[in-house]
Design a binder for these strands. Structure first.
Length: 888
RNA sequence: GGAUGUUUAGCUCAGUUGGUUUAGAGCAUCUCGUUUACACCGAGAGGGUCAGGGGUUCGAAUCCCUUAACAUCCACCA
């Protein structure tokens, strides 16, 4: 074994071996009492838009820990991988690539462009798979899926058709969010609102046949070309007489009416509002209510249309705005402009300003009550999942966020005018113009028998297919499919909180509606990965860490630990190189402590095959009499962490589980037990060392799969042994718990530490051995039995047990637990130590005073639980004893 | 406008239902150190009135109220 652990030398080999032998595939799971129970996670499919980032590593690690843990416990554990075609995002990436070659998607045509997308997809897919494997993710690649593959497409079309037939999907003109750069609609959630600096333009509209004007304020003067009314509040005294009058829209001289509506806020702007029903969500509602005209002044590419008038057709919004302002100024109709900061919608994929406009699109009706859901709506079933506790969100505080989103939910616009994605399963007859919706393309028109059917050009929102992911990947709509019955509903859905609405809520909605079952039992939301100062990692900020870089430098296990330990669900994780290096050091510690056990002490070398087989699942045995205190202590400790780590993993406290293991390996096992083991005279048992190492490797395996598997293989060399990935999870034996052993060992540790403290405080050469005298008491056997290691660890030459304190003055007294210890020192050292004792005495006196007050309170004695009172009394006794010994 | 989260050692963070916690860890700092693994190490030390204020309780980092700063989400924005 090398002196330091070299991750890159072994990781790929180990992964390949696991994969080749089929350990990731639950069809091969081991025979076990748990193996009729399933544990399922479907991987949130990464977008095929590029490479993976550290956020992926974080989420993959959490899922891999859960899967490996359950797999070792014997559950039929499926972790299913896949990728997402990511409609708009991918289309944008491919278009950018084409632009470099001075091509456009139009120049290629639809099918040529789709071919380019597939080329990109395949390339990108291979990258993603390679990177995922480097992270150690134990995914069942034999079940890998892609959102555009045949099976998922059938699921998408089946879902669409069912929803259409039940009237949940409808088509109609509505005001929608339009991204002129993507050339497509967006769902409401896909619009990012950002504050921008703009201006309030005050514009005068002339009242017809009069010299009077009514003044309005707007941030978007160019939309006046589409104005079809002016609205005022009916209770507004200023405008009472204007209601019902006709005004003239400047520039285009259209005649429109002044209407009254409560919606208008008297205090905003001038209190009069121009109404452009085709280009503003609120104006749209007013337009519907008051039966106004809807004039769409925009083309799909964001330029002004014919309806904006000859002077403006073809212009961009920005230049049209300038021209309108200039014209108004010339006509004296622009009374003033005020700067204002307001929030403007941007495309979440390309940051282009969103234009609200009216368009014919497909929608999902979230409020319609339907029979197949017992008269409930999609909105209601989505809410109930969490409200009724059918699905638990971890952490719980996201319940509120979830409900709030649902309460604000409006009909979901699902059609997109892009090319990359699932085309709508909607067919229009060229001859009779009737439409047919069908999962399979009909040969002839059911209305007129014509064979001239044309499929809709629009594609579906990418989240529509993602919403089916938990069951479409399991064979749905074929509900007899084996996987569907075994692995659906999934157990846990683990993902970042940033896609709770986009994705998670929609899976809940579609899962319950289409399969009758909620798609998973638990939602575990991880935080986002940020840099050291808490900034979200991003390409534009240049603060991103490429997981492949750090895996190469520090090893995958170290990277995994750095993303998991010290992080909690729903909170962001700050990651930086020093932190990863810290966990690399820990991995190296594990390596070296194992090297000590395996290489230096060769405690596995004499074992025959039978012994080794038994050792794969060591029984937690302890014969207290034959073992020394250190042996008993480490066995107890090990048993304790088996219990704790198992409990933490069961309750999804993954970071805490990792921390417990970190402390155990480094502090308890390496720093104390292994150091003591080196003392051959003290005589620790080889089998204890073996037992603890084996269990440690098992417990650590979900967190650091590569190094633990490698070490396991250096112990169990032959192929006939089970590899660690498939070994049995250790079970705690609570009968082993023995507080007396733990306390006794702590006493020994305390004695050693306090002597070391004295040494260090006074720079006593480590080679210089100290002479000590310990005062006899009822616990003295603890010292006698463990004198060898106390001497060894604290650098002591002699321990003399005496009935009384030494007469010589060159001894310093320390008190550790129940023991009074005298250490022989020189005069100079002594003086300094006395001062230190004062500090200790003061602390004890203060503590005793505080506890006394507590113990004299009637309330405390009456109201506090008995154990607590006893504990305080115990503490009091203890402190008092120590103080007495110190001042004596 | 509504909601949520964060605020604990110089830095980055843990701390379940209030009570073995005299508030912990890692990094950084200081001192010493080549001992059967490990300097990607060992031993030891210093460093915190747990954001401020009030309350509940025998007992609060933990529960309630309040103030402040920061972050995020939702809605609105003529």
């Amino acid at each position: 074994m090398d002196k330091t652990y070299n991750a890159s030398k072994i990781e790929d080999k180990i992964y390949n071996k696991w994969e080749k032998k089929g350990y990731f595939n639950p069809d091969n799971c081991k025979e076990n009492p748990n193996s009729d129970k399933s544990f399922t996670i479907v991987l949130p499919p990464p977008n095929i838009t590029g490479i993976l980032h550290l956020g992926h590593t974080a989420t993959f690690t959490i899922q891999d820990i859960l899967i490996r843990y359950k797999r070792m416990q014997g559950y039929r554990s499926l972790w299913l991988p896949g990728t997402d075609h990511a409609a708009i995002a991918t289309q944008n990436v491919v278009e950018k690539q084409l632009a470099l070659k001075e091509k456009t998607k139009e120049s290629l045509g639809r099918s040529g462009f789709i071919d380019e997308c597939w080329k990109w997809t395949n390339k990108c897919h291979n990258n993603i798979v390679d990177q995922t494997k480097k992270m150690g993710a134990s995914l069942d690649w034999s079940r890998e899926r892609f959102t555009l593959d045949e099976g998922i497409t059938l699921a998408v079309y089946t879902a669409f058709t069912k929803m259409y037939e039940e009237g949940l999907i409808y088509r109609g003109p509505r005001i929608i969010n339009w991204c002129s750069s993507c050339g497509s609609t967006l769902a409401d959630d896909e619009v990012d609102y950002k504050d921008v600096e703009g201006a309030f333009y005050y514009i005068k509209y002339q009242i017809k046949d009069s010299d009077d004007f009514i003044e309005i304020a707007t941030t978007r003067p160019e939309t006046l070309l589409g104005d079809t009314a002016i609205a005022v509040n009916p209770t507004d005294e200023r405008y009472k007489d204007f209601i019902g009058k006709t005004v003239i829209v400047p520039i285009i001289n259209r005649e429109i009416n002044i209407i009254a509506d409560e919606y208008v806020d008297k205090s905003t702007g001038t209190g009069a509002l121009k109404v452009t029903p085709a280009h503003d969500v609120n104006d749209y509602a007013l337009g519907k209510k008051h039966n106004l005209d809807f004039i769409n002044i925009l083309n799909s590419n964001g330029t002004l249309s014919q309806s904006a008038g000859e002077d403006f057709v073809g212009m961009t919004i920005a230049s049209a705005r300038e021209k309108v302002i200039a014209k108004l100024q010339r006509q004296g109709l622009l009374s003033k402009t005020d700067p204002i900061t307001h929030s403007v919608g941007h495309c979440y994929r390309c940051s282009t300003i969103i234009e609200p406009l009216i368009s014919e699109q497909w929608f999902i009706d979230v409020n319609k009550k339907i029979d197949s859901l017992n008269g409930k709506s999609l909105k209601e079933i989505t809410k109930e999942a969490v409200e009724l506790g059918e699905i638990e969100i971890i952490p719980k505080r996201f319940d509120k966020t979830y409900f709030q989103w649902i309460d604000n939910l409006k009909d979901w616009c699902i059609s997109r005018q892009i090319w990359w994605g699932h085309r709508l399963p909607v067919y229009t007859c060229v001859e009779c113009s009737e439409i047919t919706v069908s999962a399979k393309k009909p040969k002839t028109c059911p209305h007129c028998n014509s064979n001239q059917l044309k499929q809709d050009d629009d594609t579906l929102d990418t989240w529509f297919s993602s919403a089916l992911w938990p069951f479409a990947t399991m064979g749905w709509p074929n509900e007899n499919f084996k996987d569907f019955n075994l692995y659906y509903p999934n157990t846990v859905l683990e993902t970042g909180y940033d896609i709770l609405f986009f994705w998670v809520a929609r899976m809940v909605m579609m899962g319950k509606y289409l399969t009758g079952k909620y798609p998973f039992k638990k939602i575990y939301l991880n935080g986002l990965v940020c840099d050291k100062s808490g900034q979200k990692m991003s390409k534009s900020k240049g603060n991103g860490i490429d997981p492949m870089d750090v895996i190469k430098i520090y090893g995958a296990d170290a990277v995994r630990l750095s993303l998991v330990i010290g992080s909690t669900p729903g909170n962001n994780i700050n990651v930086y190189n020093e932190k990863i290096a810290g966990y690399r050091n820990f991995i190296n510690k594990l390596w070296n402590v194992s090297r000590f056990v395996i290489d230096y002490n060769e405690i596995f070398d004499d074992l025959d095959d039978g012994d080794l087989s038994k050792l794969q699942n060591p029984r937690a045995l302890v014969a207290a009499n034959e073992l020394n205190l250190a042996d008993n202590w480490i066995l107890n400790k090990n048993n304790e962490i088996i219990e704790k780590v198992t409990e933490k993993l069961d309750t999804y406290r993954i970071g805490e589980a990792g921390e417990i293991l970190y402390d155990f390996v480094w502090r308890d096992f390496a720093d104390w037990y292994v150091e003591i083991f080196k003392n051959k005279e003290y005589g620790c048992q080889d089998w204890v060392l073996r037992y603890v190492l084996i269990n440690t490797l098992k417990l650590l395996h979900p967190f650091a799969p590569f190094i633990t598997e490698y070490l396991w293989n250096t112990i169990f060399k032959k192929d006939k042994y089970t590899p660690l990935i498939n070994a049995d999870w250790p079970v705690a034996n609570t009968k082993l718990n023995n507080n007396k052993i733990l306390n006794n060992f702590d006493s020994v540790k305390n004695i050693v530490s306090s002597i070391r403290n004295i040494r260090s405080e006074h720079n006593i050469d480590p080679k210089f051995k100290l002479n000590t005298i310990i005062i006899d008491n009822e616990n003295i056997n603890l010292i006698v039995d463990n004198a060898k290691i106390i001497k060894d660890l604290a650098g002591i030459e002699t321990i003399k047990i005496s009935k009384q304190a030494p007469n010589e003055t060159n001894f310093v007294k320390i008190v550790s637990d129940t023991f009074e210890i005298y250490i022989e020192l020189t005069k100079k050292e002594l003086d300094e130590i006395l001062r230190k004792n004062d500090k200790e005495i003061k602390f004890l006196q203060d503590s005793i005073k505080a506890i006394e007050i507590k113990l004299n309170q009637k309330n405390f004695l009456e109201k506090a639980p008995k154990e607590i009172v006893e504990k305080e009394q115990e503490k009091y006794k203890n402190f008092k004893q120590r103080l007495e010994k110190l001042v004596k």
